[in-house]
Design a protein around this nucleic acid. Sequence first.
DNA 1: GATGAATGAGCTTTCATTCAT
DNA 2: CATGAATGAAAGCTCATTCAT
Lengths: 192, 192, 192, 192
Amino acid sequence: MRAPKTRLIFDAAIDTFSERGFEKATMDEIAAKANVAKGTIYYHFKSKEDLFVFLVEEGSQLLRERVLEKLPEEATAAERLRLVIREQLAFFKEYRDFCTIILREAWGEEERQRQFRRMLVHYVREIEALVADGVANGEFLVEDAQTAAWSIFGGLSIAALHHLFADPEFDLTVLSPGCETLFIGGLQSGRP
Amino acid sequence: MRAPKTRLIFDAAIDTFSERGFEKATMDEIAAKANVAKGTIYYHFKSKEDLFVFLVEEGSQLLRERVLEKLPEEATAAERLRLVIREQLAFFKEYRDFCTIILREAWGEEERQRQFRRMLVHYVREIEALVADGVANGEFLVEDAQTAAWSIFGGLSIAALHHLFADPEFDLTVLSPGCETLFIGGLQSGRP
Amino acid sequence: MRAPKTRLIFDAAIDTFSERGFEKATMDEIAAKANVAKGTIYYHFKSKEDLFVFLVEEGSQLLRERVLEKLPEEATAAERLRLVIREQLAFFKEYRDFCTIILREAWGEEERQRQFRRMLVHYVREIEALVADGVANGEFLVEDAQTAAWSIFGGLSIAALHHLFADPEFDLTVLSPGCETLFIGGLQSGRP
Amino acid sequence: MRAPKTRLIFDAAIDTFSERGFEKATMDEIAAKANVAKGTIYYHFKSKEDLFVFLVEEGSQLLRERVLEKLPEEATAAERLRLVIREQLAFFKEYRDFCTIILREAWGEEERQRQFRRMLVHYVREIEALVADGVANGEFLVEDAQTAAWSIFGGLSIAALHHLFADPEFDLTVLSPGCETLFIGGLQSGRP
DNA sequence: GATGAATGAGCTTTCATTCAT
DNA sequence: CATGAATGAAAGCTCATTCAT
């Protein structure tokens, strides 16, 4: 990743994969965007699949770092979940290309898709743990923390994706308050 | 759709597109699954894209029929939303292939993807209206009904998809109670 | 093989493989020679390897038919061996392309090469049996019929190949008497 | 050839060319086997073709030295030919890689193949002279010494190659007696 | 209506060669 | 002397689409 060309390829690949999807993206386009010869990509990455997996791994790791690692241990589950929602949206705002890739490319039986899902599972499991914490200490009341976690992750993601496709310049962070209210308090938030 | 071959092609296409994704699905595989010659598909559909769009239109219409058309006018917004959640999961259970296609193939700038999103927007707008109703009559408290609607739709869909990929035989309807609680009452459901 | 295009491809492939060798032959050249589109080759043959193997199988079978099937049962081993030598050279004369392919492409660890050798072994084993017959009835005197058989087959082939490369128009059948004398009677043929 | 790296490259090249054939052998593999950088090969050899030709020249020269230079002038033609057969098999035993390369890479219209054949011709011509000697002094009885020479060279080579591919550990020198008998005395060796 | 052989543009990947260091 | 990152031409293969039957 330190090699300068690798960085160029990485960025061009993110861009291209998010714009076209894995199958429609061509190595020619990635090479052109990165301003390197096609062979150069293959010097640094074994295959198109390999490039994709590398990129998804980096992105997933970044997502975990950004969203999960700064959670204050002492805060309540609700406060931490609010932070997760805020940070995930902020992440999607900064890396909108990666956000697109997540939802498009994770679902299928190809090896790269399975690998991708494994990383998502890894991430969502942390949200699940957070929800379970809240349940354990009486803050939350849900039976199935896993489904709740996937609903939250998926709800945020699809809402973000929808807005991004409607308006590429849309500022996703404005969605935070609404999403926090919805997932923490529900639609009946504040009702007796 | 009345021609018997058309039906065979339709089913084979749903099957193939959901298994492989639009790009990886081949007309050969669809033809083989439908037990017709490849030329026959082109006799009934202008192109691969045309076949896909047709299939997505039928599916979207079916989704709307199943989920939205049986909502009792007189019920509360919360009751109607619970029904929506229940019915959408039931629909995904029955048409899991279509559920997969929705989340994989709607996000991109190809014409078919734009068209697909237009249909989703059409569907989600009804949920949004329902949420807005609830807000209007004081049942719900959200600022952005649109985002709430997409979060609910997306949350349900991704949670469903996750479970389907983890276990193809999973019965999605068991997710209903949890999802209803989450979206209506929030994680703090029942807390004072 | 009845489809007309298949025949065109077959002939073009023999021609190209013998001229360039398996690796250097390109599907583009074969297609151009056969006056078909490249895709047409792949419609009839799974891969370049598949095309090659098919062609080698046909050739090997033809070689066996031409050389081995007309051997008179009642003749002496020496007479039959003379016939084999004569017929193999006649075969190489008629199918010089195949003769080239045999010696170039059989030696290596690729699957197609192993398969090829299996067919050669099949052919040479019949010569070996013939030699063994001669030994059994006292006509011949060799300890290792297998090595003798390969020496005869290889000697004929390389001598033929040498002459063909020196002069493509060379008539291989003129080599028969010399080769018969050499292998049957040895260099000291006729000496006491 | 004195530079130590050149030697490493030479050995790695022989190994790789014999294992994969000229076309399939890659400079990367040769470099890896030689434990030098790819650029280093190009420092010592102009091109892949150049490396191959160099190697073939060295090998051919060695073959001539080993087989032809120790022939006792005073011996009979038959005795000298026996020695040739023995020594060629011994050479193939020691340099089995080179033996493989000879038969695989000499037949074609590429410049390197023409050059290769010129060297083989050079070698076989000496055998031819030996045979012609025998004919001149009444030891042998053949009309076409050239064909006889190629038959002997080819017979030995193909028999050796066959055994090497059937069993890489096979000791080729055990073939000597059989081959001597075959080529000198013929299959009817010893018959009246 | 239905067929399937034929097409060719377009894709991923390989690899001999170059050259700045 | 030696290196190895970079190159780009060239190759095998795929597949949506067409069309004569």
